[in-house]
Structure formats: C-alpha cells, structure tokens
Write a protein that binds this DNA or RNA. Structure first.
Lengths: 185, 185
DNA sequence: TACGGTAGAGAACGTTCGTTCTCGCGGCAA
DNA sequence: TTGCCGCGAGAACGAACGTTCTCTACCGTA
C-alpha cells in the first residue's frame, strides 16, 4: 500500500473535470495525463484501463456529489425546505458556465450500451440519490410516492436545465415539488 | 432534385437504429454503410459528414417520435387520459430490449459540449415535446405550470426507466402526473 | 460498336487514440 | 563507489475511424 492516495485523488479530480466538461470520448489519456500532472505509466498502474478510470471517476463523483448536496440541503431548517433545496442546488449549479447536466446520465448515454461496469456505477448513484430524497421526504412525513415523484422531477430538471441552458426547469420542478409537499402528508 | 428520398430515408432509418442502440461514437461510417445498403460515396453525397448525418437523424427521429406519441395518446378519449398516456408509452417502449432512454438526451451527452448543430436539434425536440404536453394540458383545462411539471416528470421517467431497466419510474411519474391533474384545473 | 458519365466496391490516407515499450536519470543499499 | 530498482518522459505500436481516391462495370446514346 504505497502513498498513492493523493496522486490518485489528483487524477480523479482532473479526470472528473475533463470528462464532465467534454465527455469521456473527447478526452484522451494523454490530455488527462497532462492535466493530472502524472506520467502515463503511473496512470496505468493506478487504473488498468480508461474504462476502469471512468468507473472510478463516477464512484468518486458519486461520493463528492452526495456530500455536496447533503451539505447544501442541510442549511435549511425544516425537512420540507431541505427537499426543495435540491432544486435550488440545480439552479445554482447551472449558473456555472461548464454545467452539462448529470454526469451519470451523460456517462450512461456514452457507455450504457457497452459497459456493464459503468452502467452499474450509474445505477448506484441513481439509487443513492433516490434514497437521499426518500430520507428527506420521510423526515417530512410524506409518503414514498411523493419522494419517487420528486426524484423524477429532480432528474428531469437536471437534464433540461442543461439542454435549455436555463435554470427555468429547475424552478418549475421546484414549484411542482412544493405543490406535492403542500398537498400531501 | 434526384430520386434520393427513399435512399435517404433508408440511411436515416438504419442510422437511427444503430445510433440509438450503440451510441453514435460506437458506430462507424462503414458499419452504417453496410446496414443501410448503400455505398460510402452515396453516403457522403447525401450527408456531408458524420456530424451532419447525426443531426439529420435527430431531426428525422424528432418527426417520427412526435408522430408516434401523438398517435399513441390519440387513442385515449379525454385530454386527461391523453396526457397520462405518455407515461404508458414510456412503459410500453421500455419493454423492447433495445430501450436506451431518450435518444436526444443521449446525443446531448455525447455531443452537447462540441457540436452546436446537435445541441440545436436536441433543443428543438425538447421544445416540441414540451409544446405537445402543453397542448394536451391546455385541452384538459390545466394551467401551464402543470404542463411544465408533467414534461419534467416525463423526462425524468425516460432516463430512469432506461437506467433502472424497469418500467417502475414510468409508473411513478404517471402517478405523480395523475395527482397533479386531479388536484388542479 | 464506341464512348462519356455515373455509381458501387473497397483500397488508401491521415489522424487519433488506448496501451505498451524503451531509455535514461536518480535514489538507495552494500 | 557500484549496482539495482523504480519512475518519468515520451516514442512507438496497432487498431479504429472519418474521409477521399481509384478502379472497374454498367448504362444510355449516337
């Protein structure tokens, strides 16, 4: 067990940034090597292949994104406001110029048909996000179907906020979620 | 104006099938030529580049998909049922083994960062689908925000039905839409 | 029959990419 | 100091891809 962890994280962070910005197909291993500031040899001893790297990046992003959203929603003081904050998070994120929607959906679009490993990583993130919304909705005393609905609104808002290059879908989804919360439980 | 139209459609249909099944990056022009049964020369005089072909395929799918969904929903006898039928359409479509979610979202994931033409084609489809749902909701006498919400539920259901490989998200989205319809108007 | 133009088949070209190999330097043990 | 191991830099390799070019067969016309 060598001291690879900081280097590994350095690679994952650079790869995540490049993959998200340009799509995995558009980023070559050499460009990645340069961005991460490591040698190609090191890259391949950390990750056996590009596919393995993509999988690792998705797992890494899964963890960091969960933490980010959790921190973001935790700033609200009631469970209802916490649920609704996920849509504010989308609206906020979409403000940054490189916003390209959900990295996991993008990865699924690029590799879902050919890579079982990548599909599994995507499913894991969706399942986790679904669970997080479930937990918040449960804390707010709402039934499961409300959580399911809000999760799907979240997903629709992620993609369409990116495609439309506008935070309007995020606001619309928020309004719908608010209606669901207000009329249930 | 030569008699290229049937050949052109033949190419578009084959390309659409392959692109959707495997992703555009995973389909080479030669594989495409073979599937469409035309020569490479013909292919390139019909479409100046692969990017142009992808754009044309998206426009073609936009038209055929709109027609398909319109026909599907038209079988229902009330505007409310017509709106809800879009979720049944997802559930039905997800039954076929090659279901991979929304081709336009997939195309955006693959090319949104690099091709303005493809992004424009994706936006056009989203705008059209949004409009179609708006029209049905308006016919049902529901306010615009309900249509916005149902559109986003539709989008979320499309991607997550594919990722989860289950029609459950489509059913959940349908239930949410039904709740919105039942409690507004 | 001779011929010009068109189209199909597929070879060829140039590039890009994922992955591996080679070389040479630097640190460390004896 | 000497020998060795590991690493970085980057050349090299083989495959795949988008695109173009070449060759040949075929067609209608005179």
């Amino acid at each position: 067990m060598t001291q690879d962890t900081p280097v590994r994280d350095q690679v994952l962070e650079a790869a995540d940034r490049l993959f998200y910005a340009k799509g995995t197909h558009a980023v070559g291993m050499d460009e990645l090597r340069a961005a991460a500031g490591v040698s190609l040899k090191r890259l391949y001893q950390l990750f056996e292949s590009k596919e393995a790297l993509i999988e690792a990046v998705l797992q890494w992003r899964d963890a960091t994104l969960t933490a980010e959203i959790t921190a973001y929603t935790a700033r609200q003081d009631t469970p209802e406001r916490q649920v609704l904050a996920v849509f504010d998070w989308i609206a906020d994120s979409s403000g940054s110029p490189g916003f390209r929607g959900c990295a996991f959906i993008n990865a699924y679009a690029e590799h879902g048909a050919s890579s079982e490993r990548i599909t599994a990583a995507v499913r894991h993130q969706k399942s986790g996000m679904h669970g997080a919304i479930h937990a918040m909705a449960a804390a707010a005393g709402r039934p499961e179907w409300v959580a399911d609905s809000i999760f799907l609104l979240f997903e629709g808002a992620m993609t369409n906020t990116a495609i439309a290059a506008s935070s309007e879908p995020a606001r619309q989804a928020r309004a719908a979620a608010e209606f669901l919360l207000d009329n249930t439980g």
